[in-house]
Computed example of a mutant assay.
Amino acid sequence: MKETAIVYCENKFGTMDGKTANGLVRSSRKFEIVGVIDSTKVGMDSGDYLLGEKNGIPIFENLNHALEHLPSVPNQFIYGIAPSEAFLKEDERNLLFKVMEHGMNIVNPLHEFFTDDEEFIKLSKQFNITIDDIRKPAQKKDMHLFSGRILNIDTPIVAVLGTDSAIGKRTTSVLLEDALLERGLNVAFIATGQTGLIQGAKYGVAIDAIPSQFMTGEIENQIMKAYETDKPDIIIVEGQGALSHPAYISSCGIIRGSRPGAVIIQHAPKREHLGDFSYMKVPTVKSEIDLIENFSQSKVIAVTINHENMSDEELANTILEYEDDLKLPTTDALKFGCDKLITSIFDTYPNLKSKQKKVLFN
């Protein structure tokens, strides 16, 4: 059975900085999410707020409010905010001390590692709880340099990249994984960020916490583990940031380390400026495609749209416009599913089509 978990996302649920909480509400293979903490949306159903469809996961005002209404104390407390500074505020630190007093284990996705903090270590021992620093990398002696082993595998590798951070790359990756699994394919998903790892990805590494010298080797190593262990028909790699983004180098490491043959690119047409960087314009999808294809040996095979701030009519018109201008299949995976993406993958890798298994319906 999954362990129960409550997700802290004060004032950020449904926003870019709340992407960890957003992702866990949408999908969690590791935990049963029993509530979200955000006092600005108290009383709402998290699924109704985020997806327009109730999921039975309530939003609470604070920790005390949650514990008063839940049938039991959750096993895990997940810090569900991904702020650009990635460090705790003082009131959040005090909240986590109370969490430990209640006997809840802590899942920490920040760059600030609680297991390096004497006060956290002392309290975790006192209250017999565990702390999981999701982003904490292995010691350098245990990290991997790029070895070239990946050059010898012929399994199709598809990366889902984008034009900005927090734009839906992970969501599209997970939806695509599920859709391919439904077709009967053996799929390996490689998570490259904290949210995918918390959601329960079998393979992955928080790439932005890895020293640059080891980035490509660590990604390659995760793909090789998946290849050798599960012998997948296809490998889906989650992107981070954007190749063009001036503040992040994650996409560079992911492309170099995973060497995808095909790329799906995620774009938010109504987003004008990069998240957390209001002085930088979001690149056009065409310029990002050109950059990716010039930087790598990969071919962009489809475009997926983040429909934030778009009406249904705007979305439909944009899909038609992109398909006409870019000559690429375009869809919104959240709204319309992944059929176009799968068709494009099968067109790129024809051998995959024959690996589909017939699904029997009662």
Rank of each mutant, 00 (worst) to 15 (best):
K286H: 06
V285P: 01
I6K: 02
D142R: 15
T304S: 13
K141Y: 07
H69R: 15
L341K: 14
I37E: 11
R93Y: 14
K340V: 09
I236D: 13
S250C: 03
T229A: 13
A333S: 13
S165K: 00
I345K: 15
V25I: 11
A206Y: 00
G52K: 07
E53C: 05
L328F: 09
M16G: 07
H102T: 10
R93V: 01
T155C: 13
K340M: 08
L334W: 13
I301F: 03
F361C: 06
T172W: 03
G162W: 06
L70A: 06
L123V: 02
D133A: 13
D142Y: 15
T163V: 00
D290I: 15
M280F: 11
I78H: 03
L176D: 10
S296T: 02
H69D: 14
E32Q: 04
V25K: 00
K2E: 02
D290V: 14
N186Q: 12
G43M: 02
N186D: 11
R256H: 06
L63A: 10
P260K: 03
A159W: 02
H273G: 03
P211Q: 08
G23E: 00
D276A: 12
I305K: 00
I255Q: 08
S250K: 01
L145E: 06
L67Q: 15
I106W: 07
N11L: 09
F97S: 02
T40F: 01
A302Y: 03
F146C: 01
K299D: 13
P211N: 07
D233C: 14
L341A: 08
G257P: 05
I81M: 10
A86G: 09
I210N: 10
E112T: 15
I6E: 13
A21Y: 14
E112G: 12
I150R: 05
F31K: 01
I157E: 08
V25S: 00
L197K: 13
S28F: 02
I345R: 14
T172K: 07
E92R: 05
L110C: 06
L352T: 04
L291W: 05
K125L: 11
L328D: 14
T348G: 05
S258Q: 05
F97K: 11
R259L: 06
S287H: 03
D45F: 06
K54I: 08
H102C: 10
I345C: 04
A302Q: 07
S165A: 04
V99Y: 08
P156Q: 05
L320T: 13
G56L: 12
A191F: 03
E68L: 14
G193S: 04
I78N: 06
T171S: 13
M224F: 09
R183E: 15
D45V: 02
I345S: 04
K136S: 12
G261W: 08
A138G: 08
Q266T: 01
S344A: 15
K202S: 12
Y349C: 07
I292E: 01
L176Y: 08
E118V: 10
T171E: 06
G193C: 03
N105G: 00
D142Q: 15
T195K: 06
Y279R: 10
G23K: 09
D38A: 01
G56W: 14
I57C: 08
S251C: 02
G275P: 04
L291E: 12
A188S: 15
F295E: 00
C338K: 10
K125W: 08
L352Y: 06
T318Y: 12
G253L: 00
S258C: 02
H273S: 11
F127L: 09
S354D: 12
Q213M: 12
K54G: 09
D233E: 11
F31Y: 11
A209C: 15
I289E: 05
A66I: 10
